[in-house]
């Protein structure tokens, strides 16, 4: 039973523990009743014998414009990436805009240009849409929703159930760039810094990896909200295997690390918009890294860890730079700058 005074907190939307709790205790049971559902980033639907992957995402970022991206680019990349990591070839998108009364048309045009350019470059078509305007104060400038579909790539089999002890965990580049860029640009966190969002469409580099390795790629996920910590915890909880990662192998831009240190944030909890984690068979590690590094979005690709044995209470463990160990927990859902 829900208590009358329970309210939705910002942290419920942060991709961490609170969000998982909201989905498990409120959203899923209300929609599906007692039938457990396998909820993934993109669902597989059968349309006349053809398997189509289907996903949706809403974008509410502030500021709307940030170094190396904006809400428009994000809206295309986010949905393209959700499809790509599930093994789809992103094909078409819908675009829904919720605009606040008084929003500058020039800013809207800028966002639409960005949407158009990103979609064209990604080779996805925007085929339908919707526009709503709400009263001043009922939205924060503009909110965007995109929904995307695409056929599943051939010769791939991805899923938590494919993951086995000994598989290696790869990342295509530096962590935390997007989240720290956004936070440093927000009014309250006016830090002068050269940070840039990593916002990018990943279907091309993922396509290269899947073409080269086929089913040796076991699982992929883009560590957006909640960062790498949330993604690895989801993996370990869903496949029942422990995960061990090495701090010194995790690529981080020094400026991003500095900004995170100042605010007391853990880089592993910070959002990324152009990164994906791939769990790959151990014997395919070298080939996978070679493929990733051959693409501009994978130059700094690295093997960051390994899947451990099945355990009753599987955990994500980090070996620190100095050889100590610590547990990486599921983040709460909202990173708060600390006092000093």
């Amino acid at each position: 039973m829900t208590e009358e005074n329970e309210r939705i907190l910002l942290a419920h939307g942060g991709g961490g523990r609170l969000m998982a709790e909201l989905i498990a205790k409120t959203i899923a049971p209300t929609i599906y009743g007692d039938k457990p559902q396998n909820l993934t980033d993109a669902a597989s639907v059968d349309i006349d014998g053809k398997e189509i992957l289907f996903t949706t995402d809403s974008f509410v970022v502030q500021p709307l414009f940030f170094p190396a991206g904006d809400i428009g680019k994000l809206a295309v990349c986010g949905t393209v990436n959700d499809l790509a990591v599930c093994g789809a070839k992103p094909q078409t998108l819908s675009l829904a805009l919720i605009i606040e009364e008084g929003f500058a048309v020039a800013a809207l045009e800028k966002i639409l240009h960005s949407i158009g350019t990103t979609a064209r470059q990604a080779g996805v078509a925007i085929v339908t849409g919707d526009t709503k305007v709400v009263e001043k104060g009922a939205a924060d400038g503009i909110f965007i929703n995109t929904t995307g579909i695409g056929p599943r790539r051939r010769n791939t089999r991805l899923g938590f159930d494919c993951i086995e002890p000994g598989d290696v965990i790869l990342i295509n580049g530096t962590l935390g760039d997007h989240g720290m860029t956004i936070m440093s640009k927000r009014q309250e966190l006016a830090i002068q810094s050269p940070l840039q969002s990593d916002c990018a469409c990943l279907h091309e580099i993922i396509g290269l990896l899947l073409d080269a390795l086929g089913p040796k790629v076991k699982f992929m996920r883009d560590p957006t909200r909640g960062g790498l910590a949330a993604t690895l915890n989801e993996i370990t909880q869903s496949c029942g295997c422990g995960i061990e990662i090495e701090e010194k192998k995790i690529p981080v831009d020094p400026a991003v690390k500095a900004a995170a240190d100042i605010l007391g944030f853990d880089i592993l909890n910070i959002a990324n918009e152009g990164k994906f984690v791939a769990v790959v068979a151990a014997d395919a590690e070298k080939q996978a890294l070679d493929v990733l590094r051959s693409h501009p979005l994978g130059r700094k690709a690295a093997r960051i860890g390994v899947v451990g044995p099945k355990q009753p209470h599987s955990l994500v463990e980090l070996i620190t730079r100095i050889g100590g160990r610590r547990i990486i927990g599921m983040p709460y859902g909202r990173e708060l700058p600390r006092i000093c």
């Binding site: 007391g264 980090l318 620190t320 100095i322 050889g323 100590g324 610590r326 600390r338 000093c340």
Partner: peptide, 16 residues
């Protein structure tokens, strides 16, 4: 110092 508390854990110092 709270920052020490966090740093001790972050570096995994207790385990050493």
């Amino acid at each position: 110092c709270g920052t020490h508390t966090v740093a001790l854990f972050r570096h995994g110092i207790r385990s050493l």
